[in-house]
Simulated scan of single mutants.
Amino acid sequence: MEIAIYTPTELLRPFIKTYKIIESREELVNRVVPSTSFAMAFRFRGQISYVNDTDKTALPIATFSGLRKSVRLINYAPKTGALIVLLKETGVSAFFKQPLHEMFEASVSLDNFFPQSEISIVEECLAETENNQTRIAIIEQFLYSKLAYHKPDPLVSEAITKIYSKNGIIRIRQLADGLYISQDAFEKRFRKVTGTTPKQFSSIVKMKAIIRQYPAPSSFLDIALENGYYDQPHFNKNFKLFTGQTPTDFFKSTSYW
């Protein structure tokens, strides 16, 4: 698998984290752990499918995916290529006006949100070029056309910054108190912007931080206790839901992002 990463142009940088172009020469299964980013995926060659046990579910050419609490296994057929748009946590509502929490654990065809005729033009243009920079330009032109007036919620932005600064180890009530807002009102505003609750968001940030920091001198028990888990079995259970593997097996693997 080859993965190339590109930075958005200045106009789209407040809304887009990064672009990833993923290409496979041979058939493979990629392990995608949960992220705090919504994603748009445009397949320009080959076939991509979700793997569920022993079954495969083919994905549309253009797909929109919400946040998840569990791992996804994605099968890339030989000679497959896709361009992934990873949106910033506070940027997704600049393109999508639908209730974002309805997309939790979901992946649907992008034509549920934008006209199929426009998406077909993007698909055709992507398929006709072999140049990654041109592919990025095609996607950015499409994104420009969908960019609506967007007024970010400063309270939610500050909350996200605090969650990241604590690597997700933070009590939601204390977070709300520090922002001078009731917990109920805070959770509603947070879910409207990010598509998930502050608790679920924090758990994703925490597990991603654990993965990013490994290998560490600590044992898995120490890692569990340092990150707020009551014991190692509790940590192992959450880790397996997040990655689909035990900590030992996961860190032996190289095929995930």
Rank of each mutant, 00 (worst) to 15 (best):
I5G: 08
Y6W: 15
P14S: 15
K17R: 15
K17M: 13
Y19C: 03
K20V: 05
K20S: 11
S24D: 12
S24R: 04
E27S: 09
L28A: 12
L28W: 12
N30A: 15
R31H: 12
P34Q: 10
P34I: 14
F38W: 00
M40L: 13
M40W: 05
A41F: 03
R43E: 13
R43H: 08
Q47R: 09
S49C: 11
S49D: 05
V51M: 09
D53W: 14
D55S: 14
K56L: 10
T57Q: 09
T57D: 10
I61E: 09
S65G: 13
S65N: 05
I74D: 06
P78N: 05
K79W: 09
T80H: 12
L83N: 01
I84T: 06
V85A: 03
E89F: 07
K97A: 04
K97E: 10
Q98R: 15
P99M: 07
H101T: 07
H101L: 13
E102N: 01
M103G: 00
M103S: 00
F104D: 12
F104N: 09
S109D: 12
L110V: 02
D111M: 10
F114P: 01
I119C: 01
I119D: 01
S120V: 11
V122A: 04
E123F: 01
E123A: 11
E130Q: 15
N132F: 08
Q133I: 12
A137C: 12
